[in-house]
């Protein structure tokens, strides 16, 4: 199978790689770009561990072919903090102990960030509905929801 040359922007950096058309965007990020923060839980769209943004839109990277990212902008968990300064969501996840094994965490953070970008003041219900596509086998979700609500409040204050 001949490989396809893919040119993308990942977390603001121009990135090129050769992809087998069968490789998902998730495979490409992890194996070609070396960004292993994005996780694979299922490969079928059920768990959300592979959440990234493509052209500013939240997607499951396990259900997008790597070649489809050609010419597009991709944002992953690695681009979330500003150097060593953690994003408010990341800090609040630590403060609220919203993670245990941490496998689901990058997906939750990327998905939560996408939520707060379109809805800075979400209700708890909205947070729970929005994050229904992300599975966590450890925390029982409550701490995650509280961390997201708290981060949202802080971000609103900063913006004010």
């Amino acid at each position: 199978m001949s490989k396809v040359h893919v040119t993308t922007t990942v977390n603001g950096d121009a990135v090129e790689f050769l992809a087998d058309p069968r490789e998902t965007l998730l495979d490409c990020l992890r194996d070609h770009v070396g960004l292993t923060g994005t996780k694979e839980g299922c490969g079928t769209g059920d768990c959300g561990a592979c959440s990234v943004e493509m052209e500013g839109v939240l997607v499951c990277s396990c259900l997008v072919l790597g070649v489809e990212a050609n010419g597009k902008r991709v944002d992953t968990i690695e681009g979330m903090s500003d150097g060593h300064d953690l994003h408010p969501l990341q800090r609040k996840f630590i403060e609220h102990a919203a993670l245990q094994c941490g496998f689901c965490t990058p997906g939750f953070l990327v998905a939560a960030k996408a939520l707060l970008a379109r809805s800075p003041d979400p209700t708890e219900e909205e947070v729970r509905y929005w994050l229904a596509g992300n599975l966590c086998r450890c925390t029982g979700y409550d701490k995650i929801v509280r961390a997201v609500m708290d981060a949202a409040a802080e971000m609103r204050q900063e913006a004010a």
Binding site: G45, G48, V57, C60
Partner: peptide, 9 residues
């Protein structure tokens, strides 16, 4: 229909 990320695609 499904979740936000699925609806986005």
């Amino acid at each position: 229909v499904a979740h936000p990320s699925i609806r986005n695609r």
